[in-house]
Amino acid sequence: MGAINFGYTVSAARAIDLDRNDLGPARQIAAEMPEFAACIACGGCTATCTAGALTNFNFRMVQTLVRRGEYAGAWREMNKCMLCGKCRLVCPRGINTRGVVRLIKRKLGDY
């Protein structure tokens, strides 16, 4: 088996599969910081982000992915954060975004 080279491989599924994803860590983060779930995706955090101005860091997107159980790369992404705290100032839902960064770094290092 596998001896034949067909010149292509089977593409991997892109869909976020909520039947397979482990939502445990996301729930843990939400339990420690309930307002984490109150995001309305306005993007204010990303708009003002010091790191996002220079890299493709998108805090809004990464924390949304974390809430869906998509943890791969989240920890690495959060390392781009400069912890300046401006995002927390602009958040209209009062989310401690800086705290979310720290929680993701603490909880999701293994992914």
Binding site: R14, A15, I16, D17, L18, D19, M61, T64, R68
Partner: peptide, 10 residues
């Protein structure tokens, strides 16, 4: 999931 730009199923 339009906020992350990926299809989703469950």
């Amino acid at each position: 999931d339009t906020l992350v730009g990926r299809p989703m199923k469950m």
